[in-house]
């Protein structure tokens, strides 16, 4: 039993950075913009957050700083993609590479010492309850915050007027413009939100999860978040399911290795990817439904052109 609780707890924390970044990208892509630079923005967020934490600013400031750093780096992408109408895929990839380099520069000199990681919330008696305590009330605050973001993003996208307008901009910027909505401003807001979320995801990795800074420490999580968005068919709840599925298999396979399961570790390590693909195929089967790709995804738009 205790083992399953440990696996569950590991799953939730492993899923958190993926989910944060994926939720941000869902909003960006719903507005019709494809930002492939998540990995770079995460790294910049991770480096800045670690810098603040190790200089004694405290973890809340580190998270805010990480989010701001992600936001600023996404503004760079926004300038390229919205102002100069550059190819979005190329601009995103450039941001990913730029972020890797810049974060290495920011983090120079911080590689040889750790920071104390974010502690679990102390919910008094609740955390001590048998079974329910460790399952529900023993995580750090960021895990709860991330989980709360899922319904918030869902509600915004599907139940508010602003969300409807954002989706319209992603489907048909021409129509949105004709009615009088500022397409580029809306897209800018979406990009900045995505950047802040990616920065937060990076901050979670460096100061809450691992507690160290090393160059390139996201190790591909930005790219996984990007594919989770497609897996989730641009839906927040499915992004949660995907992140938990991926995180869960990552943790499960490690425990499997430790138990000495008679399977090659290479096969076990491939499980998270395999499971995600199988589920993706399964849920896309048998229903004549489009995959909900925003119709204008990655298409630059010049108002009035």
């Amino acid at each position: 039993m205790e083992l399953w609780i440990a696996i569950f707890a590991g799953t939730m924390t492993a899923a958190t950075p993926l989910l944060l970044a994926a939720l941000g990208e869902v909003v960006v892509e719903k507005s019709g913009v494809l930002n492939l630079g998540i990995e770079g923005m995460m790294l910049i967020g991770a480096a800045v957050a670690f810098w603040l934490a190790i200089s004694g600013w405290g973890l809340p400031a580190a998270f805010v700083g990480g989010a701001l750093a992600g936001l600023l780096s996404s503004a760079l992408f926004a300038a390229l993609a919205l102002l100069f109408m550059a190819n979005q895929s190329a601009s995103g990839l450039a941001l990913a590479i730029f972020g890797t380099g810049l974060s290495a520069m920011i983090g120079m000199g911080f590689g040889s010492q750790p920071v104390a990681t974010l502690k679990a919330l102390d919910l008094g008696g609740l955390s001590d309850l048998p079974l329910i305590g460790p399952l529900l009330f023993s995580f750090d605050p960021m895990v709860y915050l991330t989980l709360a973001t899922v319904p918030a993003v869902w509600w915004f996208l599907t139940r508010t007027k602003s969300g409807l307008i954002l989706r319209m901009v992603g489907e048909s910027p021409e129509n949105a413009h004709a009615i009088g909505y500022p397409v580029l401003k809306i897209r800018l807001a979406a990009i900045l939100f995505g950047g802040a979320m990616a920065g937060l995801a990076g901050a979670y990795l460096s100061v809450a999860y691992v507690g160290i800074w090393v160059e390139n420490m996201t190790a591909g999580r930005g790219w996984i978040a990007l594919s989770l968005v497609v897996f989730a068919a641009w839906r927040p709840w499915r992004a949660l399911a995907g992140a938990v599925l991926f995180g869960g298999f990552t943790i499960l396979q490690l425990h499997g290795q430790i138990l000495g399961l008679p399977l090659p570790s290479e096969a076990l390590s491939a499980l998270p990817y395999l499971a995600t693909i199988i589920v993706l195929v399964a849920i896309s089967q048998g229903r004549k439904r489009r995959l909900d790709v925003p119709a204008s995804l990655a298409r630059p738009y010049r108002p009035g052109a």
Binding site: P17, Y209, V210, M217, A219
Partner: peptide, 8 residues
Amino acid sequence: FDPGKEKE
């Protein structure tokens, strides 16, 4: 190289 996975 994957510090997150090392922690896990």
